[in-house]
Simulated assay, not measured.
Amino acid sequence: MINKTNITGIILAGGKSSRMGQDKGLLKFKEQSFIQYSIDALTPLVSDIIIVSDHAEHQLFGFKTIEDDEKDAGPVSGICSGLEASKSTYNIILSCDIPFIKSRLLEKLLKHTDDAYDIIQAESKGKTMPLIAIYKKQCLRTFKDLLNQGERRLRVAVNHCVVKNVPTNFDEDKMTMNINTKEELKLISDADNS
């Protein structure tokens, strides 16, 4: 597996959270902020963590926090900003709304890295997860070019790179679950209390 000194963790936490109505990274599940779950999953595997966010509160987590280069341009811009700030060849990119994420799923992705691929992403129940993925630093040029052309769709940007999908097993499917609405948050909270 790749030495952790050559891996940076990048958490995208700058979204508008329009469906949730509040900053998703700071939402609490089991008394812990959503963003902390991503931090905990990354910590054993990386030498550095960068949070991409325009929210000043995210600096409280104690990691380098950078703003999106281009405002309101979605995850394509967030990934560009994160890769630009990274000093590593390999970068584990996570969204901040996946409270069930665990290091072992990220380790599985790391085991699949090789020189032939730019991006190694999880695939859960047939759906690819470009925000639970490893991006090589060299993706920056492609993403930047697309951003400059006005492209905002993450899946389009990802498809301009050489990608390997790593299917999750039944136990890992839950780790990829992202929480976008208050209803979804209530569901996982109720399930946890039952």
Rank of each mutant, 00 (worst) to 15 (best):
C96A: 15
A122T: 02
K174Y: 06
Q121D: 07
T65I: 08
K64L: 10
H58W: 01
G74Q: 09
I93N: 00
L146H: 04
I79E: 00
E151M: 11
D68L: 08
L185R: 07
N91C: 09
K136F: 09
D171A: 11
E184T: 04
A116S: 14
E67M: 06
E84S: 11
N178L: 06
L147Y: 06
L131P: 01
K108Q: 12
S53V: 07
T142H: 13
K182I: 09
H55A: 10
M129R: 14
K144H: 02
D69C: 03
D97H: 09
G82V: 01
M175G: 01
K182S: 10
S47V: 01
E151T: 09
D69Y: 08
F100N: 04
K144A: 04
F63Q: 11
L60E: 15
F100I: 03
Q138E: 15
D190V: 12
G62V: 08
T89F: 02
D54N: 14
G62P: 12
K64R: 14
N148T: 06
M175S: 03
K125C: 12
D54R: 08
T176Q: 07
D145T: 10
V46C: 14
A133Q: 08
D48C: 10
S86F: 00
G82E: 06
L83S: 05
E107P: 03
S103C: 05
G150K: 01
L60P: 00
M177P: 00
I49T: 10
D171N: 13
A157S: 07
G62I: 03
V46A: 05
A73P: 03
G62L: 06
S95E: 08
M175D: 00
Y135C: 00
A133C: 02
V46G: 03
N159W: 03
L105V: 11
A56I: 15
Y135T: 02
Y117D: 09
R141K: 10
T142S: 13
H112R: 12
L60V: 12
D115Q: 07
T65F: 06
E172Q: 14
E172A: 08
C80D: 02
E151W: 00
A85V: 00
I79D: 02
L60S: 15
Q149R: 05
D171R: 11
D145R: 13
E67S: 15
S124M: 06
V162R: 11
C139Y: 04
T89E: 14
E107R: 12
M129Y: 12
T128M: 12
E70K: 13
V162Y: 07
F100C: 02
E67P: 09
A133Y: 01
I66C: 03
K127P: 00
L110V: 06
K127S: 10
S103F: 03
E172D: 13
S189R: 08
L185Q: 10
T181E: 11
N148I: 00
L106M: 06
F61Y: 15
C161T: 05
N91Y: 04
